[in-house]
Amino acid sequence: MNGPLLEVSDLSVVYRTYEGTVAAVNGLGFSLHRGRTLGLVGESGAGKTTTALSIMGLVPSPPGVVESGRIIFDGQDLLRLPEREMKRIRGNRISMIFQDPMTSLNPVLTVGLQISEALAAHQDLSEAEAERRAAEMLERVQIPAARYREYPHEFSGGMRQRVVIAMALACNPSLIIADEPTTALDVTIQAQVLELMKSLKEEFATSMIMITHDLGVVGEVCDNVAVMYAGRIVETGSLEQVFSDALHPYTRGLFRCIPDIEEELSVIRPIEGLMPEPLDLPSGCAFHPRCPRCMEICRTRVPEAIERDGHGVMCHLFSEGGGGDHA
């Protein structure tokens, strides 16, 4: 089939709390093509996880409310599907890998059982067959099948995350959403897990959304990048476009914040100010109070998304008459 596997448009999600309404995702849109990996990057509170939960139909409600939008997955709008049908997709055709494997695994069930459970829930398999397939999945993530009957606490952090990956891949999903899958791991273990995810993604011909705050991880595994700030995608494009020709002042700021490990003397230039208060987002462009190139219009008007050759940016500098250049 042609066309994107996933197309999100105009997605808005709010959390209604006693203190007020938190606008977590504001009119978000992006698409993901088959076999590709999209990196969703941003700092805490940018709305990355809420976006993922919306696709999974798992936004906690209350307090969360999906106010508008469409999430077209393989021709179906997930937001309009009844829960009964969503259940057939979740964990089967779309699965999710969470940050902390200790909390996403059940501590009182063996890892083998947890993988075979995922299989049995979605596929018409005999118990023995599910068990055989689960053991096979363990081997695929480089865990000896002999450890099938062990419990999560008997594994190291990196191995636990591999168990979670085996669970996510067990039903051979078309889409995997990985939410900071390596953030809790040490770097050498992170390298192992990223390498494994890359090769399994190829092998299973799965598409992936990789949610991360780490631009290094994006550079390592993603084909496309979407940078989020205060519930919006402020810049999107191919890895090359965003990494070698970042346009949005926030994206550029992010790159300048990271000490360069390859330079003799690295200079970091922080982004001034604080993350915006989610209960009280700034008017106009939400980044304007911290933006070094803020103009009058930025304070009042939300910029439109502008796109050229697949490189999109949401910034007045690049709209008609804006001072946008690549300097």
Partner: peptide, 12 residues
């Protein structure tokens, strides 16, 4: 050496 090689670096 392994530790250094494992650091993901945001460059193309």
């Amino acid at each position: 050496q392994a530790l250094l090689a494992a650091v993901p670096i945001p460059k193309l």
